[in-house]
Amino acid sequence: MRSFLACLLPLLAIGNVYASALTLQSPRFTISASDATQLRSEPLSTTKKPSALTLGAKDVLKVTFQVVEEEGKGVQPHQTFLRFYDEVSGEEGIQPVRVTAGGKAKFELNMAKPPASLPPTTASDPLKVELIIGSFVHSPLKMDLFDLFLPASQPAPQHPDEPSFHVRSEIHHTFQPDPKLPPKFISAVFAALVLAPWVVLLGLWGFISPSVPHLLSPSILPFIATLGAFEGLLFWYWVDLKLGQVLLYGAILSIPTLIAGNQALSTMGKWRAGRK
C-alpha cells in the first residue's frame, strides 16, 4: 500500500501540473435563413447566456469558436461535443464537433437537414445547448452556451408491432348456430323412403325364392354363423366398444372364421366338382 501511494503521488503531481484549464476564444453564433441572409449574429459569453435562440424550419445555425490554453495558444482537444438537452422531457442528443489542429471549431446545424441525433423537440420548451470538451492533459470543460428553440419535430412513426405491446380488446368468438334436425314429419317420410328398398328386396327374393339347400348343413352353418358373429361384433362396436377392443375381438374371431370358411368353401367346391 505504501509503495502504491509512493507511485501514485508523483503521478498526481504531474496531473496537477498539466491540469491547466481550457477556454474558448471568440465564440460566436450566427443564424441565417436558407437564402443566406443573416438573421442574428452575436458573440457568446462564457458567463452570461444570450436570450434564447429560435430557428425556423429551414434556418442554419453556425457556432464558431477556438479552443485555447490560458496562454492563448490553440489546442486540439481529444473530444468535443455539443449536447442538446431537453430539460422537460429529459431527452438529449450528442453531436460531435470537429476541431482543427489549431483549435478552431465550426459547428453547423441546418434545420433543412437536421442530424438524427437531435432529441425530439416541442414548440414550448427549449433545448439547452452545452459544450463539453475532454482532454487528456487539460481539465475538462463544460459550459452552457445558449437555449435553443427548434421547430417541433413530427410525432414518432408508430412501429408496426406497437399494438401488440398494449392490452387488446377481448376476443369474442362467434359460433355457427347448432344444426337443426328437420321436422318430425319429413324425417319420418324419408325414414320410410330409406326403409322401402328392404320391402323391394324381400319382395324380389320372395318372388325369386332362391333355394339354399345346404345352409343348415354342418359344414356350412359354422361359416355363416361366424360371419354373422362378425357383423354382430361390428354392431356392438357401434353401440359400445372401443377401437382396441373391437380389433382384439375381431382378431380372435377371425381364427374360427378362417377355419370354418376354409372347410365350408372346400366342401362347396367338392359338391360343385361332383355335380359337374
Binding site: F190, L193, V194, A196, P197, W198, V200, L201, L204, W205, I208, P210
Partner: peptide
C-alpha cells in the same frame, strides 16, 4: 337373380339417402 335383387336394393337405398 337374387344377387341382382340385392344390387337393386342397394341402389335404391343409396338413392334414397
Amino acid at each position: 337373380k337374387s344377387v341382382d335383387a340385392f344390387l337393386v336394393f342397394l341402389m335404391l337405398s343409396g338413392i334414397a339417402q
